[in-house]
């Protein structure tokens, strides 16, 4: 790794960290480094200062807050996927996190780092979006809550302002009767998903009462498959679900790259959404 020269600070408090980021508009927060370091290595990013968040214990850990779970931004993927609280209260987060890259990355990479990087090909943004998570940020001016629907602004661009640090995300507990699945389509185990579908489904009496669907890599930001969600309300398992999922690519604008052209991604979104819903609904 041969990055360009940068300064490095490792604040001992959140206030110091906010100050360090606010005082230099080219400073960058360093969490687990699994996305930032490759950019530095390839000299695609030239931050003036790296503000290492690694010594701020208040940013790590998973907390039960009654109607939601709060996951600290610096909690590693490995900690998230092994947390009994996350597994019981928001299993979609746990089972999706278990698909992130490989064990080495999951031990370094962080929940908040992945969200703040706002890569639409990352797995967790679509999950937090599907679950209507709320992201909590802090700056010198204080704390701010940002609904996931407003957090992901564009490709690699979040709603975080200069000088703001992501503290973590509130993940609402959906309660009983929900099933979950993350359907990830990738060519090799360690490759980015070509398309991913995060699904939460509440089912009763053979039909679907409610569905939340987040799409990975189907546009510059993670997306909700709203058309499918409404079509699934009251849909009976079988043909009705199949038909509803045909709308999965509506409102998406997937890019074309070496692994897939947009029309193929749209096709995959339909197939994978159907599979995700079926699995989440417990009818493989």
């Amino acid at each position: 790794m041969i990055p360009a020269t940068f300064d490095y600070v490792r604040p001992g408090s959140l206030d110091e960290a906010c100050q360090a980021l606010a005082s230099d508009e080219d400073a960058k927060a360093l969490a687990g480094g699994q996305s930032l370091l490759p950019l530095l290595r390839l000299r695609l990013a030239y931050p003036s200062t790296l503000v290492d968040l690694g010594r701020l214990p208040e940013l790590t850990g998973v907390h039960d807050r009654g109607d939601h779970v709060f996951i600290g931004a610096m909690t590693t993927h490995d900690e998230v996927m092994r947390s009994s609280l996350v597994n019981s209260a928001c299993p979609l987060v746990a089972l999706t996190t278990a698909t992130v890259a490989d064990p080495a990355v999951r031990h370094r990479g962080t929940f908040g780092g992945s969200l703040a990087h706002a890569d639409p090909a990352a797995d967790l943004p679509a999950v937090v979006l599907a679950l209507d998570g709320v992201l909590v940020a802090r700056s010198a001016e204080g704390e701010r809550e940002i609904p996931a629907a407003e957090f992901f602004v564009d490709y690699l661009e979040s709603a975080l302002r200069p000088g703001e640090i992501l503290l973590g995300a509130r993940i609402p507990k959906l309660g009983d009767g929900w099933g979950y699945h993350y359907e990830k389509f990738h060519r090799t185990a360690q490759a980015w998903p070509i398309v991913g579908v995060a699904a939460a489904v509440r089912r009763s009496n053979g039909s679907i009462q409610e569905a939340r669907i987040g799409l990975t890599n189907m546009g510059p930001t993670p997306l909700r498959a709203r058309a499918v969600e409404s079509a699934l309300q009251g849909a009976e398992l079988g043909d009705q679900v199949r038909q509803a999922c045909e709308q999965a690519a509506e409102g998406t604008s997937p890019s074309g790259d070496l692994h897939a052209q947009p029309d193929y991604r749209r096709h995959l979104a339909r197939v994978l959404t159907h599979r995700a819903i079926r699995t989440a609904a417990g009818s493989p």
């Binding site: 490759p38 490989d102 090799t188 185990a189 360690q190 490759a191 980015w192 070496l258």
Partner: peptide, 24 residues
């Protein structure tokens, strides 16, 4: 290995040039 029409190599990293691992 993919070159574009201008002769640029597009597969310069392992994110683009896929190698299987034991998991695959």
């Amino acid at each position: 290995a993919v070159y574009d029409a201008e002769g640029n190599l597009l597969t310069t990293t392992m994110a683009d040039y896929l190698l299987p691992s034991a998991a695959d």
